[in-house]
Design a protein around this nucleic acid. Structure first.
Length: 507
RNA sequence: GCUCCGGUGGUGUAGUCCGGUUAAGCAUUUCGCCCUCUCAAGGCGGAGAUCACGGGUUCAAAUCCCGUCCGGAGCACCA
């Protein structure tokens, strides 16, 4: 146990010095902070979840407290078992380690008891009005008959729980103030009847609490000291505290922060589902998506995501942070540990007349010898990128780690360079000479690089959101495991996704 | 429409509660130089904000007050 804790704390201390950190938590007592991350298992975890989970965890750790992962699964119509798993996997990858894992559905009976109690106390009532009536009444700020006449409240409560009402026939409403300026207080729903199979409880439960009721009860009972949520819930704070007040339950401190989303990379299922249904996107880990699995596939590392999230702070301002900032954090983490390889985009043959066949040894990393080296057999034929063929006869270029060549002939067709011929022109490194990467003709490995771009431009799907770059790299690539992140010299960082395919991470 | 919350350099933030300690710190972006057989990383330096706008209080305001404008959110038997 000690061995486990000690190294972690050491790492933490170092990180605090170099990385940005979160501001102190109001009212936090060392050793007694309890935070909670409460996702609904109704989809795959994305960058927005990551922000919340990381902040929750950072504060728990900062005060040597506890983090609870609580699946807020109070709507059997939406939850799915696979999402519970997906969320846990996502958090696992992120390195977020909850101290306690539970489901709100574990406590349904308890929550129901509190619901009954609230009705008995007169703080809530069973309402049989239609949604439409209530919608109108709320708009006008007027109470309905169910609220006015409470003589039947208790018998209705019994009917609700013994199955006498069908779905949509009755609900429990909080007795707020139908004329409150905060519309969330106009008698919101606390329980409703849902006929459906819940992934954890089956069809056992019919009367389900809403989030508005379950969240404060759970937070309070779980001992949460600091409850954090995104700012769209702000107006529900009054409700949250009113519920706890009437039930005489302890009140956590509530803190809001803005949602995290990137420009052109929407997080909402509303925007992503149609693309999947249309086949525009094949899976939830498509590199264009903001899901955690997509970030992983792209070559982003948890450490970078964490630093980035912390740098955002817990501000209330609604902004779309620059993706470049995330990339910068990621680059700094992966640069020191990524092998350098040559990748030639859109290859053009280079014939170095008279060059002798030989073996060259290339370092896998410019400064870290631990990453080793590789041997390549070269002859007089190479591939270079068409991007580097904007040349004239007589120009001198350097093939990195090899030698210099002087261009002797350029074959073009329709302005496009078909092949280049050159002759060796020395081996001394000159800073003024363009230095380009190359691949030996006998050493090629075909590779396509998937390059994700913004998914949406404004409200429109970006039809060029996934660019496919074709080229060749070294055969050395065949020995690397899927998932390895490499840097292609003068091209950028890429993660090997599958045989013959890599995904562009960033420059 | 009503209510609530935001508005600091291109971008994201610190500072705003408890007005003055650098008329604004950090990161990113961008430019230059150094380093370097990468257009990466690292080092150094530069550019870039009269703190949305208009009033007011004060010896003194990004920080307090009032108003205006702009942006976002909520007004579900979703979370």
């Amino acid at each position: 146990m000690l061995e486990k804790l000690a190294p972690e704390q050491l790492v933490k201390k170092q990180a605090v010095e170099s990385a940005p950190s979160l501001p102190p938590l109001e009212g936090a007592i060392m050793g007694q902070v309890v935070t909670r991350f409460p996702p609904e298992p109704n989809g795959y975890p994305h960058i927005g979840h990551a922000k919340a989970a990381i902040i929750d965890e950072e504060y728990a750790r900062m005060y040597n407290g506890k983090l609870i992962l609580r699946f807020d699964d109070t709507n059997p119509l939406k939850e799915k078992l696979e999402y519970y798993d997906a969320i846990r996997e996502g958090l696992d990858w992120l390195g977020v380690k909850p101290d306690i894992v539970k489901n709100t559905s574990d406590d349904i009976s308890l929550i129901q008891e509190y619901g009954r109690k609230l009705v008995e106390l007169g703080g809530a009532y069973v309402c049989t009005c239609s949604q439409q009536t209530m919608h109108d009444l709320r708009a006008k700020g007027l109470p309905c008959e169910c609220r006015k006449d409470q003589s039947e409240a208790l018998s209705r409560l019994e009917k609700l729980f013994n199955g006498s009402y069908k779905q949509n026939e009755a609900i429990i409403r909080f007795k707020g103030d139908m004329a409150d300026q905060n519309t969330a207080m106009r008698d919101p729903t606390l329980f409703r009847i849902i006929e459906g199979d819940h992934p954890k409880l089956g069809s056992k439960i019919r009367v389900w609490p809403t989030y508005d009721f379950a969240a404060p009860i759970e937070d309070s009972l779980d001992g949460v000291t600091h409850a954090m949520r995104t700012k769209e819930y702000e107006l529900r704070n009054a409700l949250y505290f009113a519920i706890l007040d009437r039930l005489g339950l302890r009140k956590p401190m509530m803190i809001e922060f803005s949602r995290l989303e990137f420009e052109g990379i929407p997080v909402s299922k509303r925007k992503i589902k149609p693309l999947i249904e249309n086949g525009l996107i094949k899976s939830w880990d498509d590199p264009r998506l903001p899901t955690l699995s997509a970030f992983r596939r792209r070559g982003f590392v948890p450490e970078a995501i964490r630093k980035f999230v912390i740098s955002l702070g817990i501000t209330l301002a609604e902004t779309k942070p620059p993706f470049e900032a995330l990339e910068a954090y990621n680059r700094k983490v992966i640069d020191p540990v990524s092998m350098r390889l040559f990748f030639v985009k859109d290859p053009v043959e280079l014939h170095v007349e008279g060059a002798r066949a030989m073996e060259v040894v290339l370092k896998n990393h410019p400064t870290d010898a631990a990453l080793g080296s590789r041997k390549i057999q070269v002859s007089d034929r190479f591939y270079i990128s068409s991007d580097d063929t904007n040349l004239n006869v007589g120009d001198e270029i350097r093939l990195i780690e090899l030698y210099n060549v002087k261009i002797t002939k350029i074959e073009r067709k329709d302005g496009k360079v078909l092949s280049v011929s050159a002759m060796p022109s020395g081996s001394e490194i000159q800073q003024s000479m363009p230095k380009i990467q190359w691949v030996a003709k006998e050493d090629i490995f075909d590779l396509q690089v998937l390059t994700p771009k913004q998914l949406y431009i404004g409200e429109e799907y970006n039809t060029n959101s996934l660019e496919v770059v074709k080229g060749v790299t070294e055969s050395f690539m065949s020995g690397l495991k899927h998932g390895t992140v490499v840097q292609f010299v003068r091209f950028g960082f890429c993660r090997i996704d599958s045989d013959g395919t890599a995904i562009f991470t960033h420059r």
